[in-house]
């Protein structure tokens, strides 16, 4: 499947793009992260510490063990700082 993967804040800066299309067979967010980490150092650096990251699947906050079958968009970002 092809996913739209989006990055925000320092995750975007470390990876160097705001969004990209990713072909993957990953079943979960964690499996997708493993695939990305294996690609290039910039991904490994961005995903170094998952406790410092949050994830949303189709714009819903979720966990790294969440399934992504049928999802259209996965977003990675640091903890939010609104308000």
């Amino acid at each position: 499947m092809t996913l739209n993967v989006v990055y925000f804040a320092w995750v975007r800066e470390r990876i160097g793009v705001a969004q990209e299309r990713i072909d993957t067979d990953a079943a979960t967010v964690a499996a997708l992260v493993d695939e990305l980490r294996a690609r290039e150092d910039r991904y490994a650096l961005a995903f170094e510490d998952l406790s410092a990251l949050r994830v949303a699947v189709d714009q819903q906050l979720t966990d790294f063990d969440a399934p992504i079958a049928g999802a259209r968009e996965v977003a990675f970002f640091p903890p939010m700082t609104g308000g």
Binding site: F8, A9, L61, A75, F77, P78, M80, T81, G82, G83
Partner: peptide
């Protein structure tokens, strides 16, 4: 809003920029 709305603040200061 502080912790669950998807906003990220970057401060631009005289000493540099940081998230």
């Amino acid at each position: 809003l502080k912790s669950r709305a998807p906003f990220w603040k970057k401060e631009i200061t005289t000493a540099g920029a940081h998230w």
